[in-house]
Simulated assay, not measured.
Amino acid sequence: MLQFLRKPRQVAALAPSSRALAKAMVEQVPHRAKRIAELGPGTGVFTRCLVDHGIAEQDLTLFEINPRFADLLAHRFPRAVLHRLPAQELAGVAGGPFDAVVSGLPLLSMTAAEQEAILDAAFARLAPDGAFIQFTYGPASPVRRGICGKLQLTFTRTRRIWANLPPATVYVFRRARVPARILDMEPAADAWTTRCLEPT
C-alpha cells in the first residue's frame, strides 16, 4: 500500500494481485508459449505463477521502473532478464519475438499517448499470433477504443474475478489479421471476442 500511495501511477492496486487473478492471467498465455515479457511485475505475483506454469525463468523479460520492486525481482528471479526501463522501451531491447506480453500496468490511469506507445512497442516485439494480456478493475476495456482501431486489435475478456481486491477482469489483445482458428490458444469457454477496429 505504501508504494501505491507514493507512486499511484506506477502501482496498479492498493494490495498485491491475488493468486486467483494471477492464475486467470497465466491461463490466457498461448499453450506453447516460451518467451514472455512482463510489464510492471511489481512484487512478482504473476512472475511466480508464470514460472510455476512451466515458463523457464531465463525466458522471462521483466520491465520494472520502481526501484524497490526491481530490487525485489532481481533477488527473487535472478535468472530472469530484468530491465529497469519503462514499458515503452520494450521495442528497443534485444531478444524476441515474444509469445506473450503479460501486463500489470495501470493502463486506466495513463494518457492515450502512453497507452498507444506501450501497445505499439509490445506488438512490435510480439510474434504474429502473440497475445497482450492485461487486467483491469474497470467495467470496460482498459485500452481506448481508438487505440484498438488504430493498431488493428481485437480482444477477448474473461468473466469478473471476484477473488481479488478489487475484483478484476482479464483482457487479451491480439492483431486482428490473425484468424482465431489458427491461434495456438482457444479462448476460454467463458470469454468472448470483440472487434474494435473503428477509431472513435
Rank of each mutant, 00 (worst) to 15 (best):
L5C: 08
P8E: 01
P8C: 02
A13L: 11
P16N: 06
A20L: 04
L21R: 00
A22F: 04
V26N: 02
V29Y: 03
V29R: 02
P30G: 04
A33S: 09
K34R: 15
P41T: 07
G42C: 04
T47M: 03
V51H: 04
V51G: 01
H53E: 06
I55C: 06
A56N: 10
E57P: 05
D59M: 01
T61M: 02
I65L: 12
P67N: 11
A70S: 08
R76Q: 12
F77I: 08
R79H: 15
L82H: 07
R84I: 11
L85F: 06
A87S: 12
E89M: 13
L90R: 09
G92N: 15
G95L: 04
V102A: 06
V102D: 01
V102R: 02
I118R: 00
A121V: 06
L126G: 05
A127Q: 15
D129R: 14
F135P: 05
T136I: 10
P139L: 08
R144H: 05
R144A: 11
C148T: 12
L151I: 09
L151R: 08
T158P: 04
T158L: 05
R159M: 14
W162V: 13
A163I: 15
A163F: 15
A163H: 14
N164K: 03
P166S: 03
P167C: 10
A168G: 10
T169R: 09
V170E: 04
F173P: 03
R174K: 13
R175P: 05
A176E: 09
V178N: 02
M185A: 01
P187K: 06
T193N: 03
T193K: 08
T194G: 05
R195Y: 13
E198G: 14
E198A: 15
T200S: 14
